[in-house]
Design a binder for these strands. Structure first.
Length: 602
RNA sequence: GGGGUGGUAGUUAAGUCGGUUAUAACGCCGGCCUGUCACGCCGGAGGCCGCGGGUUCGAGUCCCGUCCACCCCGCCA
């Protein structure tokens, strides 16, 4: 039987004691963070738990027994102590939340011993990620990680409170589902009871939440795990979490209002500041024209100006070639930028947009405007004064400004101008890190041409409602049809995406037709959904937000692995458990599975 | 599937042009220390240089392959 545990309850956590608690008898339990031994006079032990850290003082004068036991303590030993809170007076530590006091220990019990940890448990662990992942339980013991998961919990709690209060019902949907082609690669799960058949792990609850609308649930939400067998990235993991919701009898604006209320409540909970609603709305084509991307970072200006028409036939070989080939010319005005970019700086910008992974642009043209308003640099000579004047007016050039111009195929010009805008903003320090700029991007194209498939594919999914006024384009110019599809963008990140769904069988048939999908094919893939939609489906729409990315933004971290308690590596392995693993022949036999090419025996 | 960076003590890193016994800091172990707070001082132990092959009199260092981690592109309806 222990000396403390089981006899006394914890009186408080290690982050809560202040000078006002002086004289209190307290019981603390936690882990040894540091031990500083001053010899026979005594020793200081810093005790840590979820709440913070408290300095303990052990001396033979207070308790010879506790002092003796304390001398054998090591980092990460788990202990319980009792003692009296003492004001540190002259010796306060202003860098510690509990630095006003220390606890003079009268009793100490070692609850369990720790081996020397492979890396120090502190905010800066000074260890590489593989090691931290292997011993994730120690990594998570660090204060920095504990803070991130408190944020994550605050988010889910605010989401549940807000949505429940607004009439949303939480419903769980299956994870083991029928494989439906299209979209992300699915994980497959073999069926023991049905030889040769497989479940798929749900990549999203999309179809089920629509069926819940048919079922009359009206307002549904779920904080749900999704699975996609695609290559991971810094902000992507095979297993991730969505805040998923769907509503019946609603327009886009009504979806926006609910999401805004939810997001505002989340931000208020985590940051104590409620963002202004409604959020800005911007059409997709507007976003592409002004920012060259469907997820613009609105914390800074540097908007794009399309000058294709102004430079067509200008006599400048580079621009003429691009405009004649149906390409695009985009310009950016960098206010006062003439003096901020040296020749070397311009070279670096050029190389940046030329990189294949950035934009693959052919080059970067520019001009600096001198104090008299005259152009200097590569664009000064080839463009006539008239063309220069037209551009200056369109872009709003002033003396001292830098003009950046990219000319290329439209997608490349957009990408390059977007990359340029962000790079220049970063270099000139134009990004206000403390701002949260939310924006709805609306009117996405319904369909987009896929080079790989050599046909039109849905840009969102095949159940997305076209804008009613564009319906007749479905048969004549399908690529011009706009959709009732939308993304919520925050500081250059897509944090949610959704759409109004098709509830009319005739419209659905026309969209499938435009996608080149036959009735039979559609029936084979989504037959159960089409069946359901024969029984009076309500107009409905919804959205899904990425919880992991929201947490990353609110916790200010760069890697998705930081916001998942037990994440996988970029190679989709779990370094702690060793998953995935080979399994025994017996297990395989039971599942009616044969491994044809086993790398472990190759 | 493609490209890039990295892998040396428990940890983080250095290691020059291929050449003696592979360094340092932190951590760890032993001792000392009456107010520390990244405590300090003295001493000590600790190495499959990711793995496999090759070149060479000689490889941490050069070459080939491979594994792992991270980043990017494709991919993620």
């Amino acid at each position: 039987m222990g000396a403390i545990f089981g006899k006394h309850s914890r009186s408080c956590d290690c982050g809560s004691l202040r000078a006002g608690d002086s004289g209190r008898e307290v019981t603390l339990m936690g882990w040894v963070s540091r031990r500083r031994d001053l010899g026979k006079a005594g020793q200081f032990v810093v005790l840590r738990d979820r709440g913070g850290e408290t300095q303990l003082f052990l001396s033979p004068e207070v308790s010879a027994e506790a002092f003796e036991l304390g001398s054998g303590l090591h980092a990460e030993d788990c202990v319980a102590v009792r003692g009296r809170v003492q004001d540190r007076g002259e010796n306060r530590n202003p860098h510690m939340a509990t630095g006003e006091i220390e606890v003079h220990v009268t009793e100490l019990e070692v609850l369990s011993r720790s081996e020397t940890p492979p890396f120090p448990v502190r905010d800066d662990p000074g260890a590489g990620e593989p090691l931290r992942l292997k011993h994730r339980y120690l990594d998570l013991r660090r204060g920095a990680m504990q803070r991130i998961f408190r944020v994550r919990s605050q988010i889910t709690s605010a989401v549940r409170q807000t949505l429940s209060a607004r009439g949303f019902q939480e419903v769980e949907t299956p994870m083991l589902i029928k494989y439906t082609p299209g979209g992300a690669r699915n994980f497959l799960v073999p069926s023991r009871l049905h030889e040769g058949r497989f479940f798929a792990l749900a990549e999203s609850p999309q179809i089920f939440k629509q069926l819940l609308m048919v079922a009359g649930f009206d307002r549904y939400f779920q904080i749900v795990r999704c699975f996609r067998d695609e290559n991971p990235r810094q902000d992507r993991q095979a297993e991730f979490t969505q805040i998923d919701l769907e509503m019946s009898f609603v327009t886009e604006e009504e979806v926006f209002a609910e999401v805004e209320a939810m997001v505002a409540s989340v931000w208020e909970t985590v940051t104590n500041e409620r963002p202004e609603t409604p959020f800005l709305r911007m059409t997709w084509s507007d976003a592409m024209a002004r920012y060259g991307t469907d997820k613009p970072d609105l914390r800074f200006g540097l908007e794009h100006v399309t000058i294709t028409k102004l430079v067509a036939g200008s006599g400048f070989r580079v621009f003429d070639a691009v405009t004649e080939a149906g390409g695009m010319v985009k310009a950016l005005r960098v206010e006062g930028g003439a003096a901020r970019f040296s020749r070397k700086g311009m070279d670096e910008l050029t190389r940046h947009v030329q990189k294949e992974e950035v934009a693959g642009a052919k080059g970067l043209a520019f001009a600096k405007v001198d104090p008299e308003g005259a152009w200097k640099g590569p664009l000064a000579k080839p463009l006539s004064p008239e063309v220069q004047a037209r551009i200056s007016e369109a872009v709003g050039l002033q003396p001292g400004d830098l003009l950046l111009v990219v000319a290329d195929r439209a997608p490349v010009a957009h990408r390059a101008a977007d990359a340029l805008r962000r790079e220049v903003a970063a270099r000139l320090g134009l990004v206000d890190e403390d701002r949260w700029c939310f924006c709805w991007i609306t009117d996405f194209p319904l369909l987009q041409w896929s080079e790989e498939a050599q046909r039109l594919t849905p840009s969102h999914h095949p159940f997305t409602m076209p804008r009613p006024e564009d319906l007749d384009l479905l048969e004549t110019a399908p690529e011009r049809v706009r959709a009732l599809a939308y993304d919520l963008v925050l500081n250059g990140n897509e944090i949610a995406g959704g759409s109004i769904r098709i509830h009319d069988a005739a419209v659905q048939a026309r969209v499938l037709e435009a996608l080149g999908m036959s009735e039979e094919e559609a029936r084979a893939k989504f037959g159960f959904l089409m069946d359901a939609f024969r029984y009076g489906p309500p107009p409905h729409g919804g959205i899904a937000a990425g919880l992991d990315r929201l947490t990353m933004l609110l916790a200010g971290t760069e890697s998705i692995r930081d916001v998942i308690a037990f994440p996988k590596t970029i190679n989709a392995q779990d370094l702690m458990t060793g998953a995935p693993d080979p399994v025994s022949p017996d297990q395989l036999r039971e599942l009616h599975i044969q491994v044809s090419d086993d790398p472990t025996t190759r």
